[in-house]
């Protein structure tokens, strides 16, 4: 039986999605070569007498668990207008792994999940899988990473499913309790476009805008 609200995720489309996603990650790693070169430039400047304390180096890693609140902000109609989401305050959580490319820059991945409730008690579930690049500003024992995550987001509401992009800019503040362990807070903006290039849903395109406020526990290794 085909339900009037059907979701057709074609096998071909999924394959293309993941191929492109892998390509996207490859782009980031390729681009990180430039970062390595830039790091070497810094090292050279240190040799010229500029002393910079190196906390991290290429290969250092960290793992973090984040839990917090998801705040629905508004939907943006690309044809003009801002509308309310009708959604309640929700929850968010994620697991994150990052590797340092140099003292200030890390590249990693994040698997998260967020939910909010609609007036009819429907649960909107969003599962973003993103690549995350962070730039660290430090005043030891505190660190203030600025980051940009991008990837795909599985957005589900009842029988509706939309797989689309997500972009998450944000910043964090961490307190390094020990050389290995840190705790912190995060604020991120979720930009979740949902639009269609063809069919009768073109007019229903909306850009979802959410805010994430979460607490983190980090382990460096």
């Amino acid at each position: 039986m085909i339900i009037y609200v059907t979701i057709k995720i074609r096998g071909m489309a999924l394959r293309r999605v993941f191929i492109l996603f892998l390509t996207f990650i490859l782009f980031l790693f390729l681009s990180s070569d430039n970062v390595f070169l830039h790091a070497q430039d810094n090292d050279e400047r240190e040799e010229d007498g500029v002393v910079t304390l190196q906390y991290y180096s290429l290969g250092d890693q960290m793992f973090s668990i984040n839990l917090g609140l998801l705040v629905p902000l508004f939907f943006h109609n690309p044809e003009g207008g801002i509308t309310k989401t009708n959604l309640s305050l929700g929850g968010v959580g994620s697991l994150e792994w990052d590797a340092f490319l140099n003292n200030n820059l890390s590249l990693g991945g994040e698997l998260g999940g967020g939910f909010t409730i609609s007036p009819l008690k429907r649960v909107l579930i969003m599962i973003p899988i993103t690549v995350k690049m962070s730039y660290f500003i430090r005043k030891y024992p505190f660190e203030f990473p600025l980051f940009l995550s991008a990837g795909i987001c599985f957005t589900k509401l009842d029988d509706l499913l939309y797989i689309g992009p997500i972009v998450k800019p944000g910043f964090s503040a961490y307190w390094n309790i020990t050389p290995q362990w840190a705790i912190g807070i995060n604020a991120a903006y979720w930009w979740v476009p949902e639009f269609y290039l063809k069919g009768n849903l073109k007019e229903q395109a909306r850009f979802g805008n959410f805010a994430e406020f979460s607490l983190s526990g980090l382990y460096h290794f």
Binding site: K8, S118, P165
Partner: peptide, 23 residues
Amino acid sequence: AILLLVLLFSCEENSIAVFYSLE
């Protein structure tokens, strides 16, 4: 890369858009 993703995923089909439905 982000733009490519946006263009690709936006081809997915639904009978009603998720955010439009919530709105």
